[in-house]
Design a protein around this nucleic acid. Sequence first.
DNA 1: GGCAGTTTGTGAAAAGGTTCACCAGCGTAG
DNA 2: CTACGCTGGTGAACCTTTTCACAAACTGCC
Lengths: 217, 217
Amino acid sequence: MARISESTVRRLSHYYRVLEEVEAEGRRLISSHRLAEREGVTSAQVRKDLSCFGSFGRRGLGYNVAHLRQEIRTILGLDRRWRVAVVGAGNLGTALMLYRGFGQQGFDVVAAFDRDPARVGERLGDLTVRDIAELQSAAKDGSFDLGVIATPLRAAQEVADALVAAGVRGILNLAPRKLFVPPHVALRTVDMTVEFESLSFALTNVSAPARRRRPRA
Amino acid sequence: MARISESTVRRLSHYYRVLEEVEAEGRRLISSHRLAEREGVTSAQVRKDLSCFGSFGRRGLGYNVAHLRQEIRTILGLDRRWRVAVVGAGNLGTALMLYRGFGQQGFDVVAAFDRDPARVGERLGDLTVRDIAELQSAAKDGSFDLGVIATPLRAAQEVADALVAAGVRGILNLAPRKLFVPPHVALRTVDMTVEFESLSFALTNVSAPARRRRPRA
DNA sequence: GGCAGTTTGTGAAAAGGTTCACCAGCGTAG
DNA sequence: CTACGCTGGTGAACCTTTTCACAAACTGCC
């Protein structure tokens, strides 16, 4: 199988979301054109993305909604549940732990850690915040698949190292800084500051905005 | 000026962050190579990005840290302050309002709205949550530059329309769904679900992971 | 001044991603 | 059965982004 680009994977997530909606609407079939329309991409893009993984449609008809949804589910690895450890029980970390949306998609926050003794022991939903020092022992039985870094800037790299040492293979970093992790660990960074600054740039340079050929998404 | 790619703008944000750090360390000069190293990109990339906006370095020496930082500051439009309205006072919205980091970069959350009467009137830091119905009148004097959508999925498009109607020209969408806004409005979407699913994919397909040529960032 | 050692700015090449265009199938109508 | 209108899969063309590679420019030293 050819290398799959990050953009393709992200679009698969979006297609998956659309398929859930479309299935709820009771439709059995959907064409690449309609799927593309709802996502703000071209139909060729949809077909190319899907063709990386096989032939899921039928010419003249389109894609079977339930079937394609299940295929993407498998491709993305959503047939299983993922156990997530959140480090940093500040506002953002707390928001993540309490948010129900991830659980619906197969991501369960199963542990929360913080360095601040004042926060340790606090109950958040079903969880009790534990001391960051317990991370290693808590992870010894491979109980976490993913780690989320929701700590202040300065602790981020240190926590990343700790998560890696604890055997976590995927990290979502919410701290506004680039982190370095070993090649076998997958890392995604969500940096809201960058998003704000990107908006600032777009609004400041209205005479030469970053043009888009496709509908805004 | 040639069209600036979104990737370039995002990297500028990162360079800016590095320059702040480097300035705090007391260095006066930095080469594209060292700047690139700290960001996990190539030095050619740094020079190309900067060359979109002018010549800020001196051959044989590198870039003056303070000067380059100020240049990027101007390019990104961070010389002014931006007034942000947050819609949705749930966990995530609250986390954003209370987070101090944005203020340091020139983004002030100046208003918060929610639909839920139980939340309206609640105080969060310096702000009082107002009813979403007041958005139009509150914005009448052009008091918001940017809007953040931190509502549940189903309200997102509706809120986006309301923000646009209220004259907001930049929107940060945190709901896991694509939104459609008029061309003159800048929109950025941060979808954590996509990030989680991207990690899920990467960990599921370890035999053919999305390889990266550059150090993880 | 001249030379050695750096480092920028940039055209050109390479790589990567998106769109086009068309063939092969499919269902339907007549 | 045949013709027609759609639709998926896919190689080729196109476009964007990244990397390469090198001339020009600068400092420091002798």
